[in-house]
């Protein structure tokens, strides 16, 4: 072997990629990096990781056991809201289109599609049989105002989603729960 060190490094890189791929949960979607719009429009980014979710689940156990049970199944929650201006509107629309086509290619199920005059909503689910939901992706483009990207990763029991939607009157969760129950 002429270059053992180079060979070892290449092998280590492949192994590292393999390990990373294994560690990435099935419901995780990488939206990429977002920057605040130059015009000063809205920019909201929420990223909650598993250790924080576990803490909140423990805190909620006593008073809201249903919420605590749902939270224990979550691994990650990411929400991005980006205000649209002339500088980023085309880029955001292209990104939404690419994310949706990638999800379709990866076997995600599109359960909600709503396209109105100035609103384009897509809700995707990654399920594990009929037992659990491994990931939820919501993409929204409101043509003049903002783009919304949501990814929830976890091991969520499908019936719990509808319960939480009913409990807290969250319409999209009710729809997701109903769509999953119809399957």
């Amino acid at each position: 072997m002429k270059h053992p060190i180079r060979y070892a490094l290449t092998l280590a890189a492949f192994v590292g990629v393999g390990i990373h791929a294994e560690n990435t949960p099935p419901g995780y979607v990488d939206f990429g990096k977002f920057s605040p719009p130059a015009s000063g429009g809205e920019f909201v980014e929420v990223h909650i990781t598993s250790n924080l979710i576990s803490m909140v689940a423990r805190l909620a156990e006593k008073n809201e056991p249903e919420i605590a049970e749902l939270l224990r199944g979550l691994h990650r929650v990411r929400v991005n809201v980006i205000g649209l201006d002339d500088g980023n509107r085309a880029e955001m629309e292209a990104r939404v289109k690419k994310i949706r086509s990638d999800l379709d290619a990866q076997g995600w199920e599109r359960i909600v599609t709503a396209q109105k005059k100035d609103e384009d909503v897509g809700v995707y689910l990654k399920t594990r049989g009929e037992e659990a939901v491994e990931g939820v992706v919501v993409t929204v483009i409101e043509s003049n105002r903002e783009a919304v990207f949501i990814n929830i990763v976890g091991n969520i029991k499908a019936e719990k989603i509808a319960v939480i939607g009913e409990r807290f009157n969250i319409e999209p969760l009710k729809k997701i729960g109903q769509a999953v129950e119809k399957k």
């Binding site: 809205e42 920019f43 909201v44 929420v46 990223h47 924080l52 205000g83």
Partner: peptide, 17 residues
């Protein structure tokens, strides 16, 4: 880690844990 960032014309808020 940054948990929350809210930026608009009037404000810039970031929370780290």
């Amino acid at each position: 880690d940054r948990m929350v960032a809210v930026i608009n014309e009037r404000e810039f808020v970031a929370i780290y844990v």
